[in-house]
Each structure stands twice: as structure tokens, then as C-alpha cells.
């Protein structure tokens, strides 16, 4: 644990030399700065609430998200149905709560997969350089050459639309971003004295990458992960919106919006509430991401 801390803070200390010394290490300072950022803390609490409400959806609402009630079709928001009901008489609040399960799964799993594959690729490209770097980064260039959603839509369409393929497609498209970020850090760190010292003491590549280079990646990686979770959730919802996500009747925010489009004239609540829920979650994730970036970037750290 001590190795991890010292190596992580070394490049940072260089930048901070002229600044008055303060208590604690780099991460302690970052934590203090982050928790001093009111907007970021409120956003973090909101995200935790959304996660909890998705997990405990069955406790929070008496309604079944799949239960159709013909008598209450297209009812506006009321005391019984806070967000109204949809065209099949299903409670929208219940569907929003349960829908969070899918969206959050897409967000978290795709980012975990992108990190698991992107980080080692970036570390290897940056550390070994030469041909390894060339091959890995050219493959990433090809992935990046497919514009945005098109590649993801295409992959999901070819592989079949289900949760696993949606997660795979989003993770695949995120690989270049992750490997590029990690490669950049690895490139700048590999010439540092402490890496040289480790090498001269006979440490192997695997050991150097894991214990001496990876710790420097953690800071920027946390920021990227936070900011890209919101992107992944939006992409997942976009796919469902286009009819390429998890098939109906499973509640999902994107497909709820797609359902609501036909009823814009007489049931605005069908489109407004699910969309507002996604926007608030994405907003919170972005504010937390920005807060983390300010706290973890030595140039902006106060």
C-alpha cells in the first residue's frame, strides 16, 4: 500500500513544489477538496439515492411495472399515480424506478468491461512503445473512425439486441478512449527516475506496470470512469429508444420515451418523467466527474 501511495504522488509533487506544503498526501487533499464542493456532494448523494431506489424499487412502489390496468390508461399525475400512467395503464413511477436497474447495469458493466480491457492495452502501448504501441493504437484508430452511435448500433444489430450485447458494444466503442488516456500517462511516467530505479533493481515489466505505472493512472481514470458512466447510460437508453435495446415489456427509460412519443399531444407525462430522470442522473454524474477532475488534477487542486 505504501508503494502505491508514494509512486502515485511523485509526479504530482514535482508540479506542486512551489505551493505551500499542506497536510496529508495527494489523495487526502483531493478528498478534502471534493467534499468541500457542495454541488458535487449533492450530486453524489443523488446518484446514491437513484442506485438505492433502483435496488429497492419493489419496496418503494406498490405497483407492478408490468401490470396493465385498462381503467387507468393515460391518466395524468395524481396522488395514486405520482407520474401518471402510460397507454397500457401501467404506473410510470414504478416503471421509472424499475427501469433504473437496467440503465445502471448498462452504465456500470460497460465501464467495468472497458476499463478491464482498455487499461492493460493502454499500459502496454505506453510502456513498451514501438511495434506493440503501433499495433494497439492503430486498431484503436480504426474503432474511432466509426462515428459515435453508428458502430454501437451496428454491433447490436448484428449480434442481436439483448443486455449483454448492448454492454459489449458500448464497452468496445469506449476502448480507444480508455487505452489512449492510459497510454498517455504511461508514456510520461515510464521515463521517471523511480521507474528506472525499479527497473535497475530487476523488476519485471508486469511488476513495473502494476505497481509503478498503474498508480499514476488511477487519478485520471477515476475522472474518465465517472464522466463516461453517464455517456454509457445515455447510449444504452438511446439504443432502447431506437428499439435496439432490451425488448419490451421490460421497463427501460429509453423505451419508455419511445412509447411516449406517440402520445405527446395528450399524455406529456409519458415522455417528460423518464427523460427528466435520465437527465438528472447524467447531470449528477457529470457534476461529480467535474468535481473529481478538479480535485484530482494537480494543476487545479487548491
Amino acid at each position: 500500500m505504501t508503494t502505491l501511495k508514494t509512486s502515485a504522488s511523485t509526479p504530482v509533487r514535482l508540479a506542486d513544489e512551489n505551493i505551500e506544503p499542506s497536510r496529508g498526501g495527494f489523495y487526502a487533499k483531493a478528498r478534502r477538496e471534493f467534499f468541500g464542493n457542495r454541488a458535487a456532494v449533492i450530486s453524489l448523494i443523488w446518484i446514491i439515492l437513484v442506485i438505492l431506489s433502483a435496488i429497492f424499487a419493489h419496496v418503494l412502489t406498490p405497483y407492478d411495472p408490468l401490470q396493465r390496468e385498462a381503467e387507468v390508461r393515460l391518466m395524468g399525475p395524481s396522488a395514486e399515480h405520482l407520474m401518471g400512467t402510460d397507454s397500457l395503464g401501467r404506473d410510470i413511477l414504478a416503471r421509472v424506478l424499475y427501469g433504473g436497474r437496467l440503465s445502471l447495469q448498462v452504465g456500470f458493466y460497460s465501464i467495468i468491461a472497458a476499463t478491464a480491457f482498455g487499461v492493460p492495452l493502454g499500459l502496454m502501448a505506453g510502456y513498451f512503445g514501438g511495434r506493440v504501441d503501433n499495433i494497439i493504437m492503430r486498431i484503436m484508430d480504426v474503432i474511432l473512425a466509426f462515428p459515435g452511435l453508428i458502430l454501437i448500433i451496428w454491433l447490436v444489430a448484428l449480434l442481436g439486441s439483448n443486455l449483454t450485447n448492448v454492454i459489449f458494444a458500448i464497452a468496445f466503442f469506449s476502448l480507444p478512449t480508455y487505452s489512449r488516456l492510459v497510454r498517455g500517462v504511461a508514456l510520461s511516467v515510464r521515463e521517471m527516475d523511480y521507474v528506472m530505479a525499479a527497473k535497475s533493481m530487476g523488476a519485471g515489466a508486469g511488476r513495473i506496470l502494476t505497481w509503478h505505472i498503474f498508480p499514476s493512472v488511477i487519478g485520471p481514470l477515476i475522472v474518465l470512469v465517472t464522466l463516461s458512466i453517464s455517456g454509457a447510460i445515455v447510449t444504452g437508453a438511446s439504443l432502447s429508444f431506437l428499439g435496439l435495446g432490451v425488448p419490451p415489456p421490460t421497463p427501460e427509460w429509453g423505451s419508455m420515451l419511445a412509447d411516449g412519443r406517440a402520445y405527446l399531444r395528450n399524455a406529456w407525462w409519458m415522455s417528460v418523467f423518464p427523460g427528466f430522470t435520465i437527465t438528472l442522473l447524467v447531470l449528477a454524474a457529470n457534476i461529480v466527474g467535474d468535481g473529481l477532475r478538479d480535485a484530482l488534477d494537480p494543476r487545479t487542486q487548491k
Binding site: 453517464s230 445515455v234 437508453a237 438511446s238 429508444f241 429509453g254 420515451l257 411516449g260 412519443r261 405527446l264 399531444r265 406529456w268 415522455s271 417528460v272 427523460g275 427528466f276 435520465i278 437527465t279 447524467v282 447531470l283 457529470n286 457534476i287 467535474d290
Partner: peptide, 21 residues
């Protein structure tokens, strides 16, 4: 930050709701 966070598809629908409907 707010507009940066609005997903394209919801923004489009909201614009229709406000300006067209």
C-alpha cells in the same frame, strides 16, 4: 452543464412538445 447532460433524444422530444405541440 445542464444542457450538456440532456440526452439528444429527450431534448428533441421536449422541443417538439414545446414548439410544435
Amino acid at each position: 452543464v445542464f444542457f450538456y447532460s440532456i440526452p439528444t433524444f429527450w431534448l428533441g422530444i421536449m422541443l417538439i412538445l414545446i414548439f410544435a405541440v
